[in-house]
Amino acid sequence: MPAGEYSYGQLHETECIACRSADGPFTSAGHVSTEADPGADPLVWAVVTCPPCTPEGEHPMSDDRLVTLEIEGLVEPVALPLPEALARLWDELRPLPLGRLQLEAYRHFLRAGAEERVRAAIAQDGMLQLSFALNGEIRLVRATPALVPAATR
C-alpha cells in the first residue's frame, strides 16, 4: 500500500491505525507495509489501535497471539509463536561479534522466564525494543504482537 494511504501519526504509533484517533492508551496491532521506491523492498511499520478499535478482551500478548520479531538489518519481520521467536532471536544473536558484555546481557535476558518478561514488556509498552552495537552501528531488536492470531495460521 502506498505510504500516502496512512498518516504520519499512524506510521509512527501516535494515531490508531483503524480510526486515526490520537487518544490512547494504545495497543500494539502488529505491522503494515508501505511501498518504497520502485524495485526496493517495502517499508514495514509497527502500528497501534486505540481502546475502541481494540477487539473486546484482546490482550496485546495473549497465549494465542504470534509475535512479530525483527532484528534491524539482520532479520526481516517474521511472525512466530513467542517461544520460537525467542529461540530465533538467540540463534541470530549468539554468533554475532557483540562483545562479552552485550552477549551476556542478552543471555541473561533470554534465560528461563524470558517469555514472562517479554509478555510483561509488551503488555506495558505495546512492544519490546532492545538494542545492541554491531560494527559501530546501533541495531534494534523489536518484538510486537502480530496481527494474525496463532489459531488462524
Rank of each mutant, 00 (worst) to 15 (best):
R20S: 14
R20C: 04
S21T: 00
G24D: 01
G24C: 03
P25W: 05
P25G: 07
P25I: 03
P25F: 08
F26L: 00
T27F: 12
S28M: 04
S28Y: 04
S28D: 13
S28V: 01
S28N: 14
A29M: 07
A29E: 06
G30V: 06
G30K: 10
H31S: 14
H31R: 15
H31N: 14
H31F: 09
H31K: 11
V32Y: 14
T34I: 11
T34Q: 09
E35W: 04
E35A: 15
A36Y: 00
A36K: 00
D37Y: 05
P38S: 04
P38C: 03
G39Y: 08
A40L: 10
P42E: 14
P42G: 08
L43D: 15
W45G: 02
V47H: 10
T49M: 03
T49G: 01
C50F: 07
C50L: 05
P51T: 10
P51A: 13
P51Q: 07
P52I: 06
T54N: 14
T54Q: 04
P55H: 01
E56F: 13
P60T: 08
M61V: 06
M61H: 06
S62T: 11
S62P: 04
S62W: 08
D63C: 05
D63R: 13
D63H: 12
D64A: 10
D64T: 09
R65T: 06
R65M: 12
R65E: 12
T68Y: 00
E72S: 11
E72R: 02
G73P: 01
L74D: 02
L74A: 08
L74M: 12
E76V: 12
P77Y: 11
P77N: 13
P77A: 11
V78A: 09
L80S: 06
L82W: 02
E84S: 14
A85D: 05
A85G: 03
A85F: 04
L86V: 08
L86K: 01
L86A: 11
A87Y: 04
R88T: 13
R88D: 06
L89S: 07
W90L: 08
W90E: 13
E92F: 04
R94C: 08
P95K: 05
P95W: 02
P97G: 12
L98Y: 09
L98F: 07
G99R: 02
L103P: 00
L103M: 15
Y106M: 06
Y106D: 03
R107H: 09
H108T: 10
H108Q: 14
H108F: 12
H108D: 14
F109T: 00
F109V: 00
F109Y: 15
L110P: 07
R111M: 06
G113S: 13
G113C: 09
G113E: 12
A114Y: 08
E115I: 05
E115N: 05
E115W: 04
R117H: 04
R117D: 09
V118W: 00
V118E: 03
R119Q: 13
A120N: 12
A120P: 07
A121S: 15
I122M: 15
A123F: 03
Q124H: 11
Q124S: 15
Q124L: 07
D125K: 14
G126T: 04
G126N: 07
M127H: 11
L128E: 10
Q129K: 11
S131H: 11
S131I: 00
A133V: 14
A133I: 06
I138R: 14
L140K: 07
L140G: 09
V141R: 04
V141D: 12
R142C: 10
R142V: 07
A143H: 03
A143Q: 14
A143W: 01
P145E: 12
P145Y: 08
P145A: 15
